[in-house]
Design a protein around this nucleic acid. Structure first.
Length: 704
DNA sequence: TTAGTCACG
DNA sequence: ACGTACGTGACTAAG
């Protein structure tokens, strides 16, 4: 047998393609997606390898009825070229490619479950005419892969979709400009619209200079189907267009990964690409009114149009700006860590009497608790817990444990920050993070690749990393953060008189709380009392449990319970509020923020006690954390458009939940710091003052 | 992929 | 009698 013989199971080839290729029919209305995909795959195999001949087998048994005609059709096409072993010739390839074309001679493809007619055009006149279409709204989708753009799909009526490949005169820039112009005439909708702002600049924001306003929504507004679906259900992770299709349009479709796998989209057939992109535009157009109606019904329409949509535009801008990171200094920092890491490694091996992987919790647990016989707290499913809180108890007595803790801290800094961040520094010497708007259950944004919202702060050594984050030449950072925003929100939402009054006194809130809880004069509060009061304040925000508090303070659960009781005596409104929130969440199935953002809490209905308890904590925490997120988003809108109104060079570049960072031009420092603190403070008016701390510095370390 | 750990608010 | 603080993301080990 020749090594150059390709042997393929025809049934499998077609079947695989059938499930991976979106369903479509030929001009006779017969489904041919499996045939098409099978032939396509075969051609690509033959073209990218050296096979001299091929042999394709078919079997009759156990074939899916829907698949059967496609396998027969596929077999016909193959056998037109011969039977058994077929020589791989130029003629064979031509014949197969011809067959591929004949499967959809008109270039128009009728969707199976989609009531959609798709057209692919690269004709400049046709494209020009298309963008002259008059309609109330349109839905579009930029098909991209990494940085590369492949095409644009667009529909003005939700049934006729045009796909325009990016080629020749039709550039991404050209399509973007067309879309920008279109946004003046109608509202535009897409999926994950933030990714489109690279190409177009919606009219709604181009000349906007006013900040947040809780106004009625009207006009040519942008709409993001992904964000809408997220607001309605913030618990679901990984929304893809197909999830929206299934949930709102009852359409079942393959996902991007099933369609293309890890292959670059460039390599895929234009027919599959256009079908994919067009279906997303179709889904967006048809899902938009359904999602919008749901947002109206749930009271989240304004949240959508007045907060989330402008925010996505701002997040895009922040990602694009990025932040400069000094490559060499980061490297030097990492090298410095390495010296100490090596020392510690040696000392740990020495003390253990054996070399092992310190980073393996499994190995470390065995060394510490078996070989060295240290007192163990068996805590995890798979063995001993070696978490920091466990090791800290042993560290004073055992040098090896102290060394391990230090080693852990240093390797964390090295791998995640020194080495980890370096990998993200782009050619412009900046790190461009991704701000994700549709991840968290509470409404916060998150940051990935890299995460710039968890840069070290609490230890001095870690904090030093912030020195490598710098503004551009001559500029400075202005950094402003809300002081105890969550506790202030609790004061406002609970309407507790004591807590509200405490904030109006303008003194240290934890000290006031300690004074009231422990019945001692303000001046006589001990540091320990203050620390305890602070922990309780935090605990309250998290949806307190006596056990959690006891862990945090390393006290007994009994003592923790006493603290809580005293706290609730001091601030009875807080207790009442928390009870009300839980009762409301139980009745409605969700809890909500001041701005109507909802968090479903299905755990409240659980039969499992622990899960139900978790549900109660979540129900208490979500309105606090979520309202803080809402307020920060409003502040960002105010700050961003104020910078724009004043035509300032300074740019908003980072958000860290309660903190904003602006890369500030030297001649704008006074304006920006004033504006930043002001806009953040007046983003919302509560029954307690909003306090903002603002600093400037020539790096992020200094500006905090 | 999952578990464990740890960085942040 | 149970076993827990709220919300994230990145890295490493190990199946």
């Amino acid at each position: 047998m020749s090594e150059n013989l390709l042997i393929i199971n025809g049934n499998e080839l077609v079947s695989d393609a059938f499930y991976k290729t979106p369903a479509f029919t030929d001009s006779d209305g017969v489904f041919v997606n499996g045939v098409y995909g099978g032939i396509f795959k075969l051609i690509s195999i033959l073209k990218t390898s050296e096979y001299k001949s091929m042999s394709i087998s078919f079997s009759e048994d156990s074939v899916n009825e829907r698949l059967k005609p496609q396998i027969l059709k596929f077999r016909e096409i193959i056998e037109e070229n011969g039977q058994g072993e077929i020589a791989v010739t130029k003629e064979l390839l031509e014949s197969l490619e011809n067959a591929l074309k004949n499967l959809s001679p008109s270039g128009e493809v009728k969707g199976a479950s989609f009531d959609m007619t798709m057209k692919v055009t690269s004709d400049l006149n046709e494209v020009e005419a298309l963008f002259e279409t008059r309609a109330d709204r349109a839905a579009f989708y930029f098909l991209t892969d990494k940085e590369k753009i492949l095409g644009l799909s667009i529909t003005f009526d939700g049934s006729n979709v045009t796909y325009i490949p990016v080629e020749n005169f039709i550039t991404a820039d050209y399509l973007g400009k067309k879309l920008t112009l279109l946004s003046e005439k109608m509202s535009l909708c897409s999926f994950d619209i933030k990714e489109s702002y690279k190409y177009f600049d919606p009219y709604e924001f181009v000349n906007r200079t006013n900040g947040y306003k809780d106004e009625d929504v009207s006009g040519n507004k942008s709409f993001d189907v992904l964000i809408g679906a997220y607001l309605i259900n913030p618990l679901k992770n990984d929304y893809e267009p197909w999830d929206v299709a299934k949930e709102y349009l009852k359409l079942t479709l393959p996902k991007r990964a099933d369609l293309f796998g890890k292959e670059p989209l460039e390599n895929a057939d234009v027919k599959v690409l256009s079908d994919y992109a067009s279906k997303i535009a179709y889904i967006c157009y048809n899902a938009e009114p359904i999602i919008r109606a749901k947002l109206v019904k749930t009271g989240m329409e304004r949240l959508m149009y007045n907060i989330e949509m402008p925010l996505s535009y701002i997040l895009y801008s922040m990602e694009k700006e990025g932040i400069i990171v000094k490559r060499d200094e980061l490297k030097a920092y990492g090298d410095k860590l390495l010296v100490r890491i090596d020392e510690l490694e040696k000392a740990i091996y020495e003390a253990a009497g054996v070399e092992f992987n310190i980073n393996s919790p499994k190995q470390l647990g065995e060394i510490l608790f078996e070989r060295l016989g240290l007192p163990a707290e068996k805590k995890t499913k798979s063995g001993y817990s070696t978490a920091a809180d466990v090791l800290e108890k042993l560290a004073p007595e055992h040098k090896i444990v102290a060394d391990i803790l230090e080693y852990r801290g240093l390797t964390k800094l090295k791998s995640t920050y020194a080495d980890g961040l370096a990998a993200f520094i782009a050619d412009d010497n900046r790190i461009h993070t991704s701000f994700n708007q549709t991840i968290t259950a509470t409404g916060r944004i998150s940051s990935t690749e890299p995460n710039l919202q968890n840069i070290p702060m609490r230890t001095e050594l870690g904090r030093l990393i912030r020195k490598v984050f710098v503004p551009k030449d001559g500029y400075v950072f202005a950094d402003a953060d809300y002081s105890q925003i969550e506790l202030r929100i609790l004061a406002h939402m609970s309407k507790d008189k004591g807590l509200i009054d405490a904030y109006h006194e303008g003194e240290d809130i934890h000290r006031i709380t300690a004074s009231k809880v422990f019945h001692v004069p303000f001046e006589e509060v001990t540091p320990l009392q203050r620390r305890n009061a602070k922990a309780v304040n935090f605990g309250i925000v998290y949806g307190i449990s006596a056990f959690g508090l006891s862990q945090d303070l390393s006290i007994s659960a009994h003592e923790a319970k006493e603290y809580m009781e005293k706290y609730f005596e001091t601030y009875p409104g807080v207790k009442k509020y928390q009870e009300d929130v839980i009762a409301s969440a139980k009745a409605k199935g969700y809890s909500e923020t001041m701005f109507g953002r909802r968090r479903p809490v299905p755990e409240l209905k659980a039969s499992n006690f622990n899960l139900r308890q978790f549900g109660e904590r979540v129900a208490m925490n979500a309105p606090i954390q979520g309202t803080a997120a809402d307020i920060m988003k409003i502040a960002m809108i105010d700050v961003f458009f104020k910078l724009k109104e004043l035509s300032l060079k300074s740019k908003l570049i980072l958000q860290i939940h309660d903190e904003l960072v602006i890369e500030t031009a030297p001649d704008e420092v006074d304006t920006v710091t004033k504006l930043l603190a002001e806009e953040m403070e007046k983003a919302v008016t509560l029954s307690v003052p909003m306090e903002v701390d603002c600093h400037t510095g020539s790096d992020w370390y200094e500006a905090k």
